[in-house]
Design a protein around this nucleic acid. Structure first.
Lengths: 218, 218
DNA sequence: GTGCCTGCTGTGAGGGCGCTGAGGATGCAG
DNA sequence: CTGCATCCTCAGCGCCCTCACAGCAGGCAC
């Protein structure tokens, strides 16, 4: 986990760096607004801790520019309670969370972890066969990184086949599981939808086993 | 551990103070709403025990204001069972736990310790998806820094969707979580409110997945 | 080659699904 | 009470999905 700390007060910056490194983070520090913006743009960080009062460019303005450029890096903002700035501004300009100085280190860590957890949602439930990927939760299918649009029935069919890669699945089994058991559907419907699927995921990925059923090539 | 007790009934306040001090806590007492709010703002307490019925400012309102000012002090609320107030309201306005009078002192202590163990609650300060931001505590939504006015239902719907960005959420799931489970609501209501939301947050942000549900674009 | 069977696909009808405008019901503020 | 906001139902509409049908292609047995 890589963090960027943008803070001009040297002692606080050093303390944060040391503390966060002790927690196992990789921490870079920038001490001016422009330097921070540059680092955030190019650095591939997982989150940024950002002071409001900075030389050269305020923290608000920094986030605003970052967001304007379509960077959605999670930002935890540190704002001084007194003075003209207030927390509402911090949120409105695009920060994800904020903390008022003085803050407890434990709280900072908790908020930071919450931010990171949100930032990188783990989704292990993705089916993959060859270069085909199917994400049931997002209802998304990609082939070699390209998204493929499927109808509900097509998706259900592919979903079933991808859970049995390499196996031959009979037409009646598909009718039972992909179609409602209640209504009688002609077996030809399966052939039709296999056809649709082939056009979208690639003809060769879905083999016909004559007299037996279909097999998803691994 | 420093505690703030906000309770206008003198005998109960005194009893609490004595009991909790015996447990090793440092206990301050405020006897009106405004005094309690002031103390909570500036006192650096680890938790607050708060009566609902207070002169000057109700407990609900007190917590609401506290949260609006971004103070996340753990709050244990004491509500009278009868009367117009109920527990749901207490939770909705930002309390962390509640107890109905009359309560056992042992239970109060247990709940209090649980609250303190949890510590400074890591609140999802802001949900962010793209340039959309939703602040549950303040009930505010902004898009690219512009505030968007939402009705209660619209807000609840967006709130739920923003916790599952990119995932497809079915209409029945939305009915279960955004609408009251008790009353039967037509699935069409979801469609209607999705329509309202789209007009406010941008048509393209809320995709329809035919036959499956809706997805908030990431 | 001929006949048969299995599977493929273009076409088109039917209908399910989702969107929207209108309006009634309810609650709240003035 | 009046006016307004919100919630939700209803009905109509349009589109896309679904699937039956029928003709065609290709494999297999003889």
């Amino acid at each position: 986990m890589r963090l960027l700390v943008v803070e001009d007060e040297a002692r606080l910056a050093a303390a944060l760096q040391r503390g966060l490194q002790a927690e196992g983070f990789v921490v870079d520090v920038a001490s001016t607004g422009p330097a921070g913006l540059d680092a955030a743009r190019h650095g591939g960080y997982d989150a940024m801790i950002l002071d409001v009062m900075l030389p050269g460019l305020s923290g608000y303005e920094l986030v605003r520019r970052l967001r304007a450029e379509e960077h959605w890096l999670p930002v935890l903002m540190l704002s001084a309670k007194d003075g003209e700035y207030d927390q509402a501004d911090g949120l409105d300009c695009g920060a994800d969370d904020y903390l008022t100085k003085p803050f407890s280190y434990v709280v900072l860590l908790a908020r930071l972890r919450a931010l990171l957890r949100r930032g990188a949602p783990e989704r292990p439930a993705v089916l993959a066969v060859g270069d085909l990927r199917l994400d049931p939760a997002r209802r998304r299918v990609t082939r070699a990184e390209n998204e493929i649009a499927l109808t509900a029935r097509e998706f259900a069919l592919l979903n079933y086949l991808m859970r049995r890669p390499g196996e031959v699945v009979s037409k009646t089994e598909l009718l039972d599981h992909v179609w409602e058991a209640s209504v009688e559907t002609a077996p030809n419907a399966v052939e039709v939808y296999v056809g649709y699927l082939r056009r979208k995921i690639g003809r060769e990925r879905l083999e016909t086993v004559r007299g037996a059923g279909y097999r998803l090539a691994t």
